[in-house]
Design a binder for these strands. Structure first.
Lengths: 130, 130
DNA sequence: ATAATGGTTAAAGTAAACTCTAAGTCAAGT
DNA sequence: ACTTGACTTAGAGTTTACTTTAACCATTAT
């Protein structure tokens, strides 16, 4: 069982954000006698999954939708499947764009490096002339 | 030479967004006698590059910074190189996260499909019992 | 002639995702 | 006894990146 502060530390987000996610029904921890939030290991796993979805650009509303379907049990499996398949498509598009842009940057970076080298040569020649 | 509307069509963003990018000093088109924006082929190429940076999660402020360095000419090459190298690193991190999450989703999707198949079997068995 | 189309501006409004503030409770340490 | 630190709430504020509005001008089609 983790407190909100411990979870925040463990996953690298703020306690504010954790409370915000709760308000958005994305993660609903237990409470102790004093009304304080208590996160179990499985809450932590779920949270880590949520953060992976977030890092791969799934909007909070979609994540909330998935979380909601989860609470509704077995007969939402088809909907959950569709949601994950849609997100997988989105990831594949992102992979494509990132791959292309990575190549573009490689080229630009190479040509910048060449420019710097040539400018360096000139500087050296210049200094020799002095 | 393209009008703002033509450029908007060509790259798939709104004229509003193009004016916003101009206000942010990201793209500064020419003007005709009537004060209307005129975009050249090279404006268009630059814009397409900007959109690739945006699609790969570079914030507008960074893009503006790169655009600013560009206008300052040759002696900003080292700074521009650094900026692009930093972005390349960011892209590589994204590629890693996306790849991992893609695999996770593959597993989840497979197990959801199995659940649906099994539930389907039961339904069939159930209907046969009637 | 007039209405539609496409351009102009400055400025206000919006959506998403936090992030912070204020005002409070509670338990432990000095 | 009192301060420190971690928790609580409701609600206000912030940032980013647009997006819309209002009020206007110029060209083209009916």
């Amino acid at each position: 069982m983790y407190t909100i502060g411990e979870v925040a530390q463990l996953v690298g987000i703020s306690t504010h954000t954790l409370r915000y996610y709760e308000k958005e029904n994305i993660i609903l921890p237990d409470r102790n006698e004093r009304g304080e939030r208590k996160y179990t290991e499985s809450h932590l796993q779920w949270l880590k999954f949520v953060l992976k979805l977030k890092e791969t650009q799934m909007p909070i509303t979609k994540i909330r939708e998935y979380a909601y379907l989860f609470t509704k049990g077995e007969n939402t499996v088809i909907d959950r499947l569709k949601l994950l398949e849609d997100h997988k498509s989105s990831i594949e598009i992102q992979l494509k764009t990132l791959g292309e842009t990575n190549k573009m940057l490689e080229h630009k970076i190479t040509s910048y490096k060449e420019m710097i080298l040539k400018r360096g040569d000139e500087a050296v020649t210049g200094s020799r002339r002095q």
